[in-house]
Write a protein that binds this DNA or RNA. Structure first.
Lengths: 129, 129
DNA sequence: AATCGTTTACGGTCAAGACGTAAAACTGGC
DNA sequence: GCCAGTTTTACGTCTTGACCGTAAACGATT
């Protein structure tokens, strides 16, 4: 997901108009429109005021955004790829689950084996679906 | 922690010189120095190349950085905040775990109750630690 | 002190962030 | 259909500040 898509998502999620966010954030309407269409990028300072307008931290605002060369989306975690390749255990796992699972990590550490991934998958599935 | 402190931290952690990072990232030495002293802020694009130079995602680079008006607590998923407030179940959960758990979602959906969060936490902890 | 390696200070430039105005694209009512 | 009102987009302009090059300052070693 690109940054400008994220920005539009946040606003439409809340059912706000450009005018509303513009007034809250103190940013002009045309510029907001430009940002949401990817015509230009916000400075870090503008990012902060936008995050504040949506009551988010900058980190949370950026969390779903894939930057070019992001380590996480270039390759699947090792064991997860194995799980997906396993027709019986992982053959039916959908792409949204893959992207959800791919984000799991603690200080750069991740599950290693396909069994571990499967275990996590089943546990999350039980709770989230 | 300010962004410029974070940048200096990353470089000194790795024992690199301005020259080293400069060559890896393709950024001039004086400008790197400026960034690390807070004389100027990087553009989002420069942030990405810096994150790549340190082999981090942009989110991980920014994770310890406190922006003005950070509202990270308000962005915590509902039940997760409850879990953290629970002294016996969640009192000992560390910040890196919180940020790790916060990323869990499927198509915008997340665990709702503190019991669900705790269940996931224990399951992940067993595998990741 | 002199030389070498590293970091900082300082100006200049030019891309692009941000805005204002105005046109375009909806939306609903008549 | 047409028209009024609202919301979004296109475009031109200004101005800030990101980024660089050069040179000076700092430090260590001999």
């Amino acid at each position: 997901m690109k940054l400008h898509e994220r920005l539009r998502e946040l606003r439409s999620e809340r059912g706000q108009r450009l005018k509303d966010v513009s007034e809250i954030a103190g940013i002009s309407i045309p510029y907001l429109s430009d940002l949401e269409r990817g015509r230009t990028n916000p400075s870090l300072e503008t990012l902060q005021t936008l995050a504040a307008a949506y009551d988010l931290s900058v980190n949370d605002l950026l969390a779903p955004v894939e930057f070019y060369g992001d380590a996480s989306d270039s390759a699947l975690p090792k064991g997860l790829a194995d799980l997906l390749a396993d027709p019986v255990l992982g053959g039916h796992i959908t792409p949204d689950w893959v992207s959800s699972l791919s984000r799991i990590e603690l200080r750069g550490k991740r599950p290693q084996t396909k069994e571990d991934w499967y275990d996590i998958y089943r546990n999350l599935k039980r709770i989230l679906e």
